[in-house]
Computed example of a mutant assay.
Amino acid sequence: MPFACSIPAVSTVLADDARVRITRWDFAPGATTGWHEHTMDYAVVMMTDATMAYEVDGVVTQVKLQAGQSYSRPAGIKHDVRNDGPHPMTFIEIEIKR
């Protein structure tokens, strides 16, 4: 079931060249990305401390992350991301082109 939210996260493409696309994501409390699927492997670097929730295959997982923390994911996983904390959340997403 999709996250109930009327607030979309705001994406800003910082760089897009032959090798990578780098996007800054800014979330107000409760904001979501909306359902999407990456066509490229990607890495995320947190810019703020945050409580993030993400949904994959009907399962919602909540994680606490700290500024500077990072993770990577493969392409092809349909998901939605929500700021589950009381403060704005920001991360940088780096998609790796093949």
Rank of each mutant, 00 (worst) to 15 (best):
T12K: 15
A67M: 07
I77Y: 05
G85L: 04
G76F: 07
V10S: 11
L14C: 05
G76M: 04
D57R: 08
M52A: 04
D41G: 00
T51A: 11
G30S: 07
L65K: 14
W35T: 12
V60M: 11
V13Q: 07
I7W: 01
P29L: 04
A9H: 05
P8D: 11
T61Y: 12
G34I: 08
K97Q: 15
F27V: 00
P29V: 10
T23Q: 00
V44A: 01
H38D: 14
R19S: 14
S11E: 14
G30K: 05
A50C: 08
T90V: 14
G68S: 10
I92H: 10
P88D: 10
Y42I: 00
D80L: 06
S70H: 12
T61M: 12
A4F: 08
E37S: 10
N83E: 03
V59H: 13
A50N: 04
G34A: 13
P2M: 14
M46W: 11
S70D: 03
K97E: 13
V45N: 06
P74R: 13
L65P: 09
N83W: 00
N83C: 07
F3W: 14
S72G: 13
C5T: 15
A75Y: 03
I94K: 07
V63S: 10
E55C: 13
C5N: 15
I22F: 04
V59I: 14
A53F: 01
S70L: 01
P88C: 02
Q62M: 13
F91V: 04
D16Q: 09
I22D: 01
S11C: 09
